[in-house]
């Protein structure tokens, strides 16, 4: 197996040479997954906080459903979205299929349950501590949720990173709704799948290393930012 040692060399060359095709794929991966993470957080953080702090009918059921959806197989979600976004489907008029927009949508839906469920747990734990104090200060419920979200921001940043990690690493959903179209919807994971199917194992592995390297840099910068904002 020379592929493994070869892969390091290829990965290094790819990055050093500044391969345009590679950078295009990296930027699209980041654009899609970061946007998806952002939207998922805008929806999932307040939703998780609401699940933790509000009491309403169906709350238990919603919590169970959210936790279950964390295990949604990406390819199944991709298939559902394909059928919805297809020109033969109900949302074909959006003309989203085979665009980065469809990929953002897929990854957003994929990670909303993760962000929501983890946020709910974190806010729930803190709510035990904060509830009496905030109640005593007559903080309105909406403002209380805001306060909790802000006060647990360090933990929630980890939640966002978990969502981002799931988004940028999945291939099943984006390959179905994106189509792995060169220069349009090809991202790191679909490129890896393609190179694997071409038998270019060293190149595929090298792309995998580049993907991990990017994740590493993002995690490192988030973690150092977190060091400044926590407590």
């Amino acid at each position: 197996m020379t592929d493994f040692s070869q892969a390091f060399g290829v990965a290094f060359q790819l990055l050093i040479r500044g391969d345009d095709a590679l950078y295009e794929i990296i930027f699209l991966s980041l654009r899609v997954s970061l946007t998806a993470t952002l939207i998922a957080c805008v929806i999932g953080l307040p939703l998780g906080a609401a699940l933790a702090t509000l009491s309403f009918r169906g709350k238990w059921l919603l919590t169970v459903v959210t936790n279950t959806l964390m295990g949604m197989p990406p390819v199944v979600l991709g298939l559902i979205l394909y059928m919805a976004l297809s020109n033969a489907g109900p949302f074909g008029w959006l003309q989203l299929l085979y665009t980065p927009g469809a990929m953002i949508l897929a990854q957003t839906l994929l990670i909303i349950p993760i962000v929501t469920a983890l946020t709910r747990q974190i806010i729930d734990d803190n709510w035990l501590d904060y509830r009496e104090q905030l109640h005593s200060l007559c903080v309105p419920r909406f403002a209380a949720i805001q306060t909790l979200l802000w006060d647990t921001r360090a933990s929630l940043l980890t939640v966002a990173m978990a969502g981002f990690a799931r988004a940028i690493s999945e291939v099943g959903a984006v390959i179905v709704v994106g189509g792995n179209i060169n220069h349009l919807t090809r991202v790191m994971t679909t490129a890896i799948a393609l190179e694997t199917s071409k038998g270019e194992l060293a190149l595929a592995l090298a792309l995998g290393m580049v993907l991990l390297l990017i994740s590493l840099m993002i995690n490192a910068s988030v973690l150092s930012a977190k060091g400044h904002t926590s407590r």
Partner: peptide
């Protein structure tokens, strides 16, 4: 018009000043 202090203080994860500002703003 009432306030309460608990056995175990529940301070917000912010600066000392921000803990006061929070209530004043409220």
């Amino acid at each position: 018009q009432q306030s309460m202090v608990f056995q175990k203080p529940v301070l917000l994860r912010r600066s000392v000043a921000a803990n006061i500002d929070y209530v004043l703003k409220l």
